[in-house]
Amino acid sequence: MQADQRHYGRRGFLLLVAGGLSSLAWAGPASRLLSPLTSAGSQLLGDLLPVGGWRIYTISGTMPLFDPSSWRLEIDGLVKHPHSLSYDELRALPKAEQISTFHCVTGWTVNNVHWAGVRFQQLFDLVQPLPSATAVRFVSAEHPYEDSLTLDQLRFPDAMLAYELGGEPLSRPHGAPARVVLPEMYGYKGVKWLTRMELVERQPEGYWEQNGYDQDAWVGRSNGYHS
């Protein structure tokens, strides 16, 4: 080997690997810092890239299709007056709006999400939960997805059954026509393609809870995260 040969290759390799591994510590803050830039770039591409935006997670082969004429939201279980709401009936209830942050348990976040829908209290006023009811089991049209939240959690001021996102009716990937929103918890608690709300005495385990995820999915302090 000649005298002027330098081992830049192994140095470069080790530096890249070390830099890459260290980014596991700083990539989140860095991407949040860059997100105004990257999400603007992504919007230029017609939201082709989910930079600073949504990723769509499903558990089955195809996403449920929403048919406004046949869709019903069943609200039953431990209630005085079970209801079966049509899409129009749901939209006729008093409308609430909010802007909140959406956190996914896998590590991505969408800021300033504009939701519109109904507060759960409106639905509870309709069906009159029995005193024994403590939680709601949310059932998705995407079988076998379901999850649950307690009545106390559903009375949070920013808990919502959303039917609009960004001023538009909820699209198919976002759970048309209605999904659960609770910004304090990770997104897996917010059942999409909702078809049934069953009021129950004890909170059952949902799809991801059966796979080892926490029942209470508080952002930053559940599922192995500590803030």
Partner: peptide, 21 residues
């Protein structure tokens, strides 16, 4: 990403972002 979904002790908040980058 794969193992963190199964065992939350191995869940790293930024692993997904780095994988994307």
């Amino acid at each position: 990403l794969w193992y963190g979904e199964r065992n939350h002790a191995f869940r790293l908040q930024n692993a997904l972002i780095v994988h994307d980058w």
